[in-house]
Design a protein around this nucleic acid. Structure first.
Lengths: 261, 261
DNA sequence: TGTTGATCTATTGTCGACAAGAGGCTCCCG
DNA sequence: CGGGAGCCTCTTGTCGACAATAGATCAACA
């Protein structure tokens, strides 16, 4: 069985969880004179732990299906099981981890069925997100999107799969953000990690990363027309291609094809 | 004293709650009358606790906006804070509770905006759910739906608001279940508690509970035609009426889980 | 008198230890 | 040689205690 023992998560992990400082310590309350206008995001231990584990899962350090043993991981990270458990719950919400009562937490295995389900909902919701975002697709909003395209292109140039995928995710995320629809954005967030995991595992289906860039430039062009029907058609095509193109993923179970219209 | 209910939860002590659905795992399924050897429901303490709190929130015992103090509630229920915290997380997932780091957990306050967001997504997804469910709307599936209508009618006859709302929720849930689309059903579940809370608080907008019954009978009739366009139109009307009819309910509690990226 | 600063308390976050469930293994028995 | 009961161990679930934080209270001071 896959053992987490072999993971690279340890206390010597650079910028995470410095053991020198008591966990849960606040960011800056005392001599934090430079109160910038930016939102201060409170650093919680479970959040940090979840971040470390998320990275480990997405980069393949923690293989799909492997059990995440609380005591072991907690010891590795230098925290107790309480915050670790909460971190696992966070990841479970994101679909990266599956918790089974009295059995444990396991790294999720992306299934073709699961991806198809996500795709089927995206086909119906992403056009709506775009529609809501349309009024904000100029100015600052556009800058954000274009930047993700640039990132994507640079990643493709370097043959950097991770960067390309990150930018890919950012492209879509920005659209959901610009929709200013809280629930929609939440939904995207709940899918993003799984999509990322899936795409990473499925990289061979992208012989040329530049195709990804071209695909999204095309999508943006169509979005710019504001033609909702065309947008819906394109999203349909886009989403279909980016997920259904998948060969057998990881999970063997479930051969039933998701009913797609 | 928040005194949820001075019931004690213990394993050696069969708890006195049942009116609510079995909480907890993502595979919640409760059959009635089904003889098939359904999966055994592992009763977890957090799930049980969540059930008690859910009931208390939905029936108004715990007022929106009130803080849920862990020590007090844990003592009241006879459990320690660990399982209680997990229960709060469950409820947070359902949108009934809002957790703020270092501040605590608060009963969610349903906002008109939040309801409108749910409605906007339902308008786009529920027709899809119905479409997927269509092939299963005869036989056992139909029986289930009709049963919820009967329940609704009985509740209306008795002027029993709670029962009517429960049946109302069941009507829609059955449709999502029959769609056999896991993600869709999960989405409905994540909305159901909030909708229920909203409807309960907004009961005055239902001068005659029989209207609710009539509304759903009409919806079922249109579903039976299988005319997707008509169904979409009807859902649009139905959802719109059942949520937007709301006056400004309460103020929203702005809060999102601080999560590390 | 308004403001700043320290103190104090209620509440959440974290910890280490213990209890209980689950699964594997051995050893007995047919 | 096969089957099953009972241990044995690993892992998760739960607990009570302690640490740290946020917010309120109140005093000192310009």
């Amino acid at each position: 069985m896959v053992n987490v023992e072999t993971t690279t998560i340890r206390k010597d992990n650079p910028m995470t969880l410095s053991p020198n400082r008591p966990p849960g310590s606040t960011v800056g309350r005392r001599e934090d004179g430079d109160i910038s206008l930016g939102r201060i995001h409170q650093r919680t231990t479970p959040g940090t732990v979840a971040g470390v584990l998320r990275t480990a899962i997405l980069d393949g350090t923690l293989a799909p299906g492997s059990q995440l043993r609380e005591a072991h991981i907690a010891a590795d990270l230098g925290v107790s099981r309480a915050p670790l458990r909460e971190a696992l719950s966070i990841l479970a919400d994101e679909g990266l981890v599956v918790k089974i009562a009295y059995k444990g937490a396991f790294v999720a295995e992306v299934s073709a069925k699961g991806m198809a389900e996500i795709a089927s909902l995206r086909k119906r919701l992403e056009p709506y997100a775009i529609e809501l975002a349309l009024p904000r697709l100029s100015g600052a909003g556009r800058t954000k999107i274009v930047r993700t395209l640039q990132d994507m292109a640079r990643g493709a140039d370097d043959g950097d799969l991770t960067r390309t995928i990150d930018a890919h995710m950012s492209f879509h995320r920005v659209i959901y953000e610009l929709s200013e629809h809280g629930l929609l954005l939440d939904l995207w967030r709940s899918w993003e990690s799984q999509l990322q995991l899936f795409l990473s595992a499925d990289h061979q289906s992208f012989p040329d990363l530049h195709d990804v860039v071209a695909e999204h430039e095309r999508l943006l062009t169509i979005i710019d027309t504001g033609d909702l029907e065309a947008i819906t058609r394109e999203i349909d095509r886009h989403v279909h291609g980016s997920t259904d193109a998948a060969p057998a993923a990881t999970t063997p179970v479930d051969g039933s094809q998701p009913s797609n219209a």
